[in-house]
Lab assay of single mutants.
Amino acid sequence: LGPKYVGLWDFKSRTDEELSFRAGDVFHVARKEEQWWWATLLDEAGGAVAQGYVPHNYLAERE
């Protein structure tokens, strides 16, 4: 699936296409579209919880 990303700060969605998340949440990014990335929010087991657009500057690649 490629690298995983972690949320740096809490983010509250403003549209139906955006995905709310908390700092520390883990994502798989499917598409990078300039300022907004289409991402899947993952649970602790790595299963998909939700999908939506997230601001790229709120995520960091997980080491």
Rank of each mutant, 00 (worst) to 15 (best):
L1H: 13
L1I: 12
L1K: 13
L1V: 12
L1A: 13
L1Y: 12
G2P: 12
G2I: 14
G2S: 12
G2F: 14
P3Y: 09
P3C: 12
P3K: 13
P3L: 11
P3A: 11
P3R: 09
K4N: 10
K4Y: 15
K4Q: 14
K4L: 15
K4G: 07
K4I: 15
K4C: 13
Y5K: 00
Y5R: 00
V6G: 01
V6S: 02
V6A: 03
V6K: 04
V6F: 10
V6Y: 11
V6N: 04
G7D: 04
G7Q: 02
G7R: 00
G7E: 01
G7C: 08
L8A: 03
L8M: 09
W9K: 11
W9S: 07
W9C: 12
W9H: 09
W9M: 10
W9T: 06
W9Y: 14
W9R: 13
W9G: 04
D10Y: 07
D10L: 09
D10C: 09
D10G: 04
D10V: 10
F11D: 03
F11C: 07
F11W: 13
F11K: 00
F11L: 02
F11T: 01
F11A: 01
F11Y: 15
F11E: 04
K12E: 14
K12G: 06
K12H: 14
K12F: 14
K12A: 12
K12L: 13
K12P: 05
K12I: 15
K12C: 11
S13R: 09
S13W: 05
S13C: 08
S13I: 07
S13H: 04
S13V: 01
S13D: 03
S13Q: 08
R14P: 05
R14D: 11
R14I: 11
R14F: 09
R14S: 15
T15M: 08
T15Y: 08
D16N: 13
D16V: 10
D16Y: 07
D16M: 08
D16F: 09
D16W: 08
D16R: 08
D16K: 11
E17N: 14
E17K: 14
E17I: 11
E17Y: 12
E17H: 12
E17G: 12
E17S: 13
E18T: 11
E18F: 12
E18R: 05
E18S: 07
L19F: 05
L19D: 03
L19E: 04
L19V: 06
L19K: 00
L19I: 10
L19S: 00
L19W: 04
L19Q: 02
S20P: 04
S20G: 06
S20F: 02
S20L: 04
S20Q: 04
S20E: 06
F21Q: 00
F21A: 00
F21C: 06
F21H: 00
F21D: 00
F21L: 01
F21V: 04
F21S: 00
R22V: 11
R22M: 11
R22Y: 10
R22W: 09
R22K: 15
R22F: 12
R22N: 11
R22I: 08
R22D: 05
R22C: 12
R22E: 07
R22Q: 11
A23F: 03
A23V: 08
A23C: 07
A23L: 05
A23P: 02
A23M: 08
A23S: 07
A23I: 05
A23W: 06
G24E: 04
G24F: 04
G24L: 06
G24D: 03
G24M: 04
G24S: 02
G24N: 05
G24P: 03
D25H: 03
D25G: 04
V26E: 11
V26Q: 10
V26T: 12
V26M: 13
F27P: 00
F27W: 03
F27D: 01
F27R: 01
F27K: 01
F27Y: 01
F27E: 00
F27S: 00
F27V: 03
H28C: 09
V29R: 00
V29F: 02
V29N: 01
V29Y: 04
V29E: 02
V29M: 00
V29A: 02
V29Q: 01
V29D: 01
A30G: 13
A30Y: 13
A30S: 15
A30E: 15
A30N: 15
A30P: 02
A30M: 15
A30F: 12
R31L: 07
R31I: 09
R31W: 14
R31Q: 07
R31P: 04
R31K: 10
R31T: 07
K32R: 09
K32W: 06
K32G: 03
K32M: 08
K32I: 05
K32S: 07
K32V: 04
K32T: 09
K32Q: 06
K32A: 04
K32D: 03
E33C: 14
E33V: 07
E33G: 14
E33S: 08
E33W: 08
E33L: 08
E34N: 09
E34I: 08
E34M: 09
E34H: 11
Q35A: 11
Q35H: 15
Q35W: 12
Q35P: 07
Q35E: 14
Q35S: 12
Q35R: 12
Q35F: 15
W36A: 06
W36G: 09
W36V: 07
W37D: 00
W37K: 00
W37A: 03
W37F: 06
W37Q: 00
W37V: 06
W37H: 00
W37G: 00
W38N: 00
W38V: 06
W38R: 00
W38Y: 13
W38Q: 02
W38P: 00
W38K: 00
W38M: 04
A39F: 02
A39D: 00
A39W: 05
A39H: 02
A39M: 01
A39E: 01
T40L: 12
T40W: 12
T40S: 08
T40P: 00
T40D: 02
T40Q: 08
L41M: 09
L41N: 01
L41W: 04
L41H: 01
L41C: 05
L42V: 06
L42P: 00
L42I: 09
L42E: 03
L42M: 06
L42T: 03
L42G: 01
D43N: 10
D43V: 06
D43F: 06
D43T: 05
E44K: 10
E44N: 10
E44S: 12
E44H: 10
A45F: 14
A45P: 02
A45Q: 14
G46C: 08
G46M: 05
G46R: 03
G46Q: 04
G46T: 05
G46H: 04
G46W: 05
G46V: 03
G47Q: 15
G47N: 15
G47M: 15
G47C: 12
G47F: 14
G47P: 02
A48P: 12
A48E: 13
A48D: 08
A48H: 09
A48W: 08
A48C: 08
A48Y: 10
V49A: 06
V49Q: 07
V49K: 08
V49E: 04
V49H: 05
V49M: 09
V49G: 04
V49W: 04
V49N: 04
V49L: 11
V49D: 03
A50W: 06
A50T: 07
A50D: 09
A50I: 07
A50P: 01
A50C: 08
A50F: 05
Q51P: 01
Q51E: 15
Q51F: 09
Q51N: 09
Q51K: 07
G52I: 03
G52H: 00
G52L: 03
G52N: 03
G52Q: 00
Y53W: 15
Y53A: 03
Y53P: 01
Y53D: 01
V54I: 03
V54Q: 00
V54G: 02
V54T: 00
V54K: 02
V54R: 01
P55I: 07
P55C: 06
P55T: 04
P55A: 04
P55H: 07
P55N: 07
H56L: 07
H56C: 15
H56T: 07
H56P: 12
H56Q: 12
N57T: 10
N57D: 12
N57I: 06
N57H: 11
N57C: 14
N57G: 09
N57F: 09
Y58L: 07
Y58S: 06
Y58T: 04
Y58A: 11
Y58Q: 02
Y58H: 04
Y58V: 02
Y58K: 04
Y58E: 00
L59K: 01
L59I: 05
L59W: 03
L59Q: 02
L59G: 02
L59F: 04
L59C: 03
L59E: 04
L59R: 04
A60D: 06
A60S: 10
A60M: 13
A60W: 09
A60H: 09
A60V: 14
A60E: 12
A60Q: 13
E61R: 10
E61V: 14
E61M: 12
R62T: 14
R62D: 13
R62P: 10
R62I: 15
R62V: 15
R62C: 15
R62H: 14
E63A: 13
E63S: 12
E63L: 12
E63G: 12
